[in-house]
């Protein structure tokens, strides 16, 4: 299960990276309310990692458990280590002129 957890963690990093690029693209294409775009992306990312993670754990198959735990650990670690920037939960993104 530890191996599939690492796979889940890697999957989250990939999803986060792709989501980051898509969010930047969409935010660039709108003139106003860029923070809404980032906020929606942050909620979608959290739903995939936490909602999807819990769902996979509840399937109670060895590989789905590991994958689900990896997704959740990935979201939490990236949130803590990037101070919320990479997962869209840092206040500076919305108030500090980052956008």
């Amino acid at each position: 299960m530890v191996a599939t957890a690492f796979a889940g963690f890697a999957a989250f990093i990939l999803i986060n990276f792709v989501g980051f690029l898509v969010t930047l693209g969409v935010a660039d294409s709108v003139a106003e309310n860029k923070e809404v775009v980032v906020g929606v992306a942050a909620v979608i990312l959290a739903a995939i990692a936490l909602g999807g993670g819990v769902g996979l754990v509840l399937l109670r198959r060895p590989w789905t458990k590991g994958l689900g735990l990896g997704l959740m650990i990935g979201w939490a670690l990236v949130s803590i280590l990037s101070v919320g920037f990479c997962t869209g939960v840092n206040p500076d993104i919305y108030t500090g002129g980052t956008l």
């Binding site: 299960m1 754990v57 735990l69 650990i73 979201w75 939490a76 949130s79």
Partner: peptide, 16 residues
């Protein structure tokens, strides 16, 4: 292993 990993996931997500 499995229960420890679940506890770690809970701690990290809950902490964040």
């Amino acid at each position: 292993h499995e229960e420890s990993l679940v506890a770690v996931a809970g701690a990290l997500v809950g902490g964040a």
